[in-house]
Design a protein around this nucleic acid. Structure first.
Lengths: 117, 117
DNA sequence: TTAACTTATGAACGTTTATTCATATGATAA
DNA sequence: TTATCATATGAATAAACGTTCATAAGTTAA
């Protein structure tokens, strides 16, 4: 009985702490948007290809085996979410991974998979 | 002209290397499923609350301000994807974060956001 | 400017998915 | 067993999203 009360108090304390440190709705939505961007296999493939260095759109299409329109749409999503960046070089537009955090997240996700298979 | 050829060769080499190291379709789908699980704000909130320690379902409901059915459905998704684990304690079922990789990914995602805002 | 090449984008269709409602299952106490 | 509390789940509705098709926009060379 005493135990139950203590547990209850502990859990209530956890909830309070968690809520105090909880990011606001907007921040949570942004974090979620990042993860969502990384969740689609077609985008993951593009990212894994770009992990090797910058490439233009038609090379990306060739590498992932998807058509140009689909790849461009996905690149836009990736870019809007700061997962990749781009620069123009003549007729071509070269895409690359935006920063190191992305590759770290990919690596941690793969480690997590290995731990649970 | 020479430059263009060299660039072309470099990009082709990148594609070859990337494709050689590319996980198979199934692995990519699994990685994507993990990210997708982390992408929904309602699930992220649950996870951020559980980051403080294990809690039973009704405490989670209270903390995230969602109804019991929705929370149970989301907990099932989180558990199926090895993001959380659970144990029964009497009438209650206590949920907690499955392992440290999850919290690392959350942290890296937040760092990534901070770099780009 | 015109033609050729490269990338981007709008609309529509089909699929996936989160929430809600109602109900079932599991556990404990009386 | 029965009543109550706690959690899980099936079905349905509504919203979100990826792909495709068609076409626009930007860049370079002739």
């Amino acid at each position: 009985m005493e135990n139950i009360t203590n547990e209850e108090a502990l859990h209530e304390a956890r909830i309070k702490t968690a809520l105090a440190n909880m990011p606001d709705e907007e921040k949570i939505a942004e974090i979620g948007a990042r993860f969502k961007t990384l969740s689609e296999p077609s985008r993951l493939k593009i990212l894994l290809v770009l992990a090797g260095g910058e490439l233009c759109v038609d090379h990306i299409c060739e590498a992932v085996g998807a058509n140009q329109s689909a790849v461009s749409h996905q690149l836009k999503t990736l870019k809007d979410n700061k997962i990749v960046k781009s620069r123009r070089d003549g007729k071509k537009v070269l895409y690359s991974v935006a920063d190191g955090h992305i590759l770290i997240m990919l690596e941690v996700a793969r480690e997590h998979l290995n731990c649970h298979e």
